[in-house]
């Protein structure tokens, strides 16, 4: 039995991260990415409130009430970490020092547009730092289920939901495939074990080009 698919998606996203990278992880599956960064790579995790070098959760009872991540959850720091105020935190993002952000997505369009912050009609959560991160991270990786609960593709010709940022996503990791977004649109590069190129094409709501040698991703549990 292999790994759970959400874990495999996180592990695949972690392959994009290099030693010394400055990385911001969004909520949900992106948060799991940290568990798959190999030990020989030192990565500095950025939290919007004002930390570079966020570390794992403290042991129960060792929490510091004034050391939290952007989800309000207690964290630790790694050697080499720094604290700064929240305006400086976004100065780092806007000035292009954030190498990678991994974000969840509601929809991704073939031109890289991302919608991930609100669905009209419900309670509006607010965008938090998503617009700043999506616009200015050097590389934006969207991690999402390929289709919604009704089976509609989340990869589309254009987004129907309110945008987070225009033309920002360069890689989409779904539960069935890994798709690059370049200036011509979606390019299928990899499928997860058990899925086929034909299935991915059928479930994608936009044109999908396919590379010659599609990698099949298979991870040992």
């Amino acid at each position: 039995m292999g790994m759970a698919i959400k874990e495999m998606m996180a592990k695949r996203a972690a392959e994009e991260i290099d030693n010394g990278n400055v990385v911001n992880l969004g909520f949900g599956i992106p948060q799991k990415v940290v568990n798959y960064i190999p030990a020989d790579k030192t990565v500095f995790l950025h939290a919007e409130n004002g930390v570079l070098g966020a570390g794992p959760a403290p042991e129960p009872g060792k929490e510091d009430k004034e050391l939290i991540d952007s989800g309000g959850v207690p964290i630790t720091t790694v050697p080499g970490a720094s604290f700064f105020d929240s305006a400086d935190s976004f100065a780092l993002v806007r000035s292009g020092k954030l190498d990678i952000t991994v974000l969840g997505a509601l929809e991704v369009a073939e031109n890289g547009d991302l919608a991930n912050w609100m669905v009209p009609g419900g309670l509006i959560p607010g965008m938090g730092g998503a617009m700043d991160l999506a616009r200015h991270a050097k590389k934006v990786i969207a991690v999402t289920m390929h289709t919604d609960k009704k089976g509609n593709s989340k990869l589309k010709k254009s987004c129907s939901l309110p945008l987070t940022a225009m033309s920002c996503v360069s890689l989409v990791i779904t539960d069935i495939a890994v798709i690059e977004v370049d200036d011509k649109g979606f390019l299928l590069k990899e499928v997860f074990e058990g899925h086929t190129v034909e299935e991915v094409i059928e479930k994608t709501g936009a044109d999908l080009r396919v590379v010659d040698n599609v990698r099949t991703i298979s991870y040992e549990a």
């Binding site: 919007e48 105020d85 929240s86 305006a87 935190s89 976004f90 607010g126 965008m127 617009m131 700043d132």
Partner: peptide, 15 residues
Amino acid sequence: DVEFSPQGTLSERIR
């Protein structure tokens, strides 16, 4: 009434 501002923009508006 709620006025939303992206977090980095809000921080910079206050700065």
